[in-house]
Design a protein around this nucleic acid. Structure first.
Lengths: 343, 343
DNA sequence: ATGAAAGCGCTAACAC
DNA sequence: GTGTTAGCGCTTTCAT
C-alpha cells in the first residue's frame, strides 16, 4: 500500500515474527516454513516494504552499483558506451552512477575518487588523467576498468578499441586509391586513444605515405574550424579523429565548394549514426560503441584487472573517399618546405 | 596514503580522540579546538580516510543522489538532458544514478520504483508509463519531477518544452510559404509529448491547413522508413516528430531524387547538433536540451512538486523549407479521397 | 570542547 | 525453523 518508508520492524510486527525471519524471507533461499513466509510476504506487501539499500550496503560492503566517468555525457560516443554499460549492469542487478567531467582532467580525478567510495567498480573514460593519479584511483576503488586506455598495473583492467589497426586500414584504403599526402585532424591533446591513432599513421608513413597532423579536437565544431588550416597543407585525403569531426569537416568543405571526394577524400573513425546519412556517405572505421560498453561491464563482472580486452572494428567504405586527384596547376608540389612528416 | 578502507575508528585511535570528535571535524562547522582539529585532519590524511557514504545515508536518510530514468540513453536528446542534470547535480553535491529503459513502459516503471528507494529525488523521462503507475512512483519516491509530461498531482513536478507552440510556429512558417498540405511524422504511440505536438497541429488545421499524420517513431531509421508512405499523401511539406527523424527523411528523399525544398519542404523539432550540418540545413524548432536538464535539477532542488516549468524554444529557419511548389501535372489535386484531415 | 552511548535498518552468527 | 544478539560506520544527543 504505502510508500517505501516502512522498515523491517514494521513487517516483523505485523507478521508476528522476528526481523531475522523477515530478512530470511526477503532474501530468499533461506529455510523458512511456507506458512510463515506467506505471512511475511503479505505483511510486506501490506506496508509496501522494500529493504533500505543503504543499510544493506553498509552491512554487505557492496552497493550493487558501478560508476561510469566520461568526459562528455552529451557526446554520442560516450552516451552509447553508457547505454551499453547501464543495460548490462541492470541485467546483472547493478545500478549505474555517472559523472561527466567536462573534459577537465582535474574533475576527472575528483569525480572518480568521489564515486569510488560508493561503487563496487569504476569504469573510466579518462583519456587525459595522469598515470599516477589513475593509480591513486585504482587504489581507492574496489575495481577499476579503463575504456580506451591501457595501463600496466596489477589492479587496472581495460577495454580498448584497436584504433591503430583502424588507422592502418584507412590508410591502406586511401593508398589503394592513390593517396600519398594525408592530413590527420588530431584529437584532444594527450588523449591516449589519439596516440594509438598516431601510431597507426607512423606505420603508414613507413609505407611511403605522408601524414601531416593538424591540431583539432573531438567535436563537430572542431572539425569545422580545422578545415582551413588543413587545406593549406594541400592533402588529397583527410582523416579525422572521429566521425563527429569529419562531419564538421564535410560541412565546411561544402561551404568552400571543395568537391568530396573529387578534390579531397575524407574519412572518419567510429561510424557515428549520422555517417551513413551524409552526402556523400562517410568512409569510416566502424566500432560498436554499445558493444564497448557491454564488454566493459563483462570485464568488471568477471576479472576486472586481467589485462586488456581488445575490440576490433571494420572498414566501412562509403562515398566520401575516392581516387586521388592528379596534381592540378603548377608542379610545385612541395612548395613550402613544411614539416613533411609527423614527428 | 592508503585506499578508502579506513574507518572513523582508525582515525580516532591515531588522533587519540573519540569518533564523535572525528565526525565533528569532518563535517565542519562544529566547535572543535584548532589543535585537535589539526590532529584529526592529519590522521585522516595519513590513512586516507573518507567517510562511508552508506553509513551516512543510513543515518541521515538522504543519499545525496538523484535518479534519472530515460527511454534511450544513447539518444542524443536524452544524453544531453542527462548531461545537464548530472552537471548541475554535481554542482549541488549530488550524484546521479541512471537507468535506460529501452523504450519499454514496464521497465520504465520497474526502474523508477527500484531507483526510488535509493535516491533523494527522481527525474523521469517516461513518456509511455500509465498515469496510475506514475502516481505509484510518486508515492514511492521522496520527490518526483517529470520531463516533458505534466500530471496534475500534489507531489509531481514537471519541466516541459512547449511543443505545441513549436508546432504552431512551424506551421505558421510553412503557411507563409504557401504550404497547405502537411504530413506529420508521428512520434512513439501514446507519448505525451507527441500529443502536445498533435494539439499544435489541430490549431493549424483550424487555420486552414491540412495535416495528415503518418505513424513513424523517434529515430533516424523511423524517419527513413516512413518517407515512402508519407509521399503517398502528396504533401508539399513534412514535419517530423524530431530532428533525428527528419534527418532520416532527408536521406531517403535524396535517394528518391526528391528535391528539398523545391518539391518538398522538411522541418524537424529540437535542433539536434547535426541539423545545422545537413545539406540543405534543417529548419527546426530549437530547444536547449542541456538547459532542460538544468531546469529539471533546479526544480528538484527547490520546489519539486510546484506545477510545471515551461521551457520555450525558437524557430530556426534553414534551407530545408521553401516556397510550396505549384501543383504539377493534372489538376486532379484531390485524386484519392484520402482522410483529408487528422482525426 | 570533548567523550560515552544509543541507534539508523539490516543481516549473520549463534542459540534453541 | 525461528528468535536473540551483535554490529556494519557513522552522527548525534546527553553528559561532563
Amino acid at each position: 500500500m504505502s510508500s517505501g518508508r516502512a522498515t523491517i520492524h514494521d513487517v516483523a510486527r505485523i507478521a508476528a515474527v522476528s526481523t531475522a525471519t523477515v530478512s530470511r524471507v526477503m532474501s530468499g533461499g533461506k529455510p523458512v516454513s511456507a506458512e510463515v513466509a506467506d505471512r511475511v510476504r503479505a505483511a510486506a506487501r501490506e506496508v509496501g516494504y522494500r529493504p533500505n539499500p543503504a543499510a544493506q550496503t553498509l552491512l554487505r560492503g557492496r552497493s550493487q552499483t558501478i560508476g561510469v566517468v566520461a568526459p562528455d555525457l552529451g557526446n554520442p560516443y560516450f552516451a552509447e558506451i553508457l547505454k551499453g554499460v547501464a543495460a548490462e549492469a541492470a541485467e546483472g542487478g547493478h545500478h549505474t552512477l555517472v559523472a561527466g567531467t567536462d573534459e577537465d582532467p582535474d574533475l576527472e580525478y575528483r569525480s572518480a575518487i568521489e564515486l569510488a567510495r560508493w561503487v563496487d567498480g569504476l569504469l573510466l573514460c579518462a583519456p587525459r588523467m595522469s598515470t599516477p593519479r589513475l593509480k591513486e584511483v585504482a587504489a581507492a576503488s574496489r575495481s577499476l576498468v579503463l575504456i580506451n586506455r591501457v595501463l600496466r598495473h596489477p589492479s587496472i583492467g581495460a577495454v580498448v578499441v584497436d584504433y591503430q589497426e583502424g588507422v592502418r586500414l584507412l590508410c591502406e584504403h586511401l593508398a589503394s586509391l592513390g593517396h600519398t599526402r594525408i592530413v590527420y585532424l588530431e584529437g584532444p591533446p594527450n588523449a591516449w586513444s589519439d596516440r594509438q591513432r598516431q601510431r597507426g599513421f607512423r606505420a603508414a608513413e613507413a609505407l611511403g605515405q605522408t601524414v601531416v597532423p593538424v591540431p583539432c579536437g573531438s567535436a563537430m565544431r572542431d572539425g569545422y574550424a580545422a578545415v582551413d588550416e588543413a587545406l593549406t597543407h594541400k592533402p588529397t585525403a583527410l582523416i579525422a579523429f572521429n566521425d563527429h569531426v569529419a562531419l564538421g569537416v564535410l560541412t565546411r568543405l561544402r561551404e568552400l565548394g571543395v568537391d568530396v571526394p573529387g578534390e579531397l577524400s575524407v574519412a572518419g573513425i567510429d561510424d557515428a549514426p549520422m555517417s551513413a546519412h551524409t552526402n556523400p556517405g562517410l568512409t569510416t572505421f566502424a566500432v560498436s560503441t554499445v558493444e564497448l560498453g557491454r564488454l566493459a561491464w563483462q570485464r568488471f563482472s568477471s576479472d576486472p584487472a586481467a589485462g586488456a580486452t581488445h575490440l576490433s572494428g571494420e572498414l566501412v567504405i562509403r562515398g566520401s573517399t575516392g581516387a586521388a586527384p592528379r596534381r592540378r596547376r603548377s608542379p610545385a608540389t612541395a612548395t613550402k618546405p613544411q614539416a613533411s612528416s609527423a614527428r
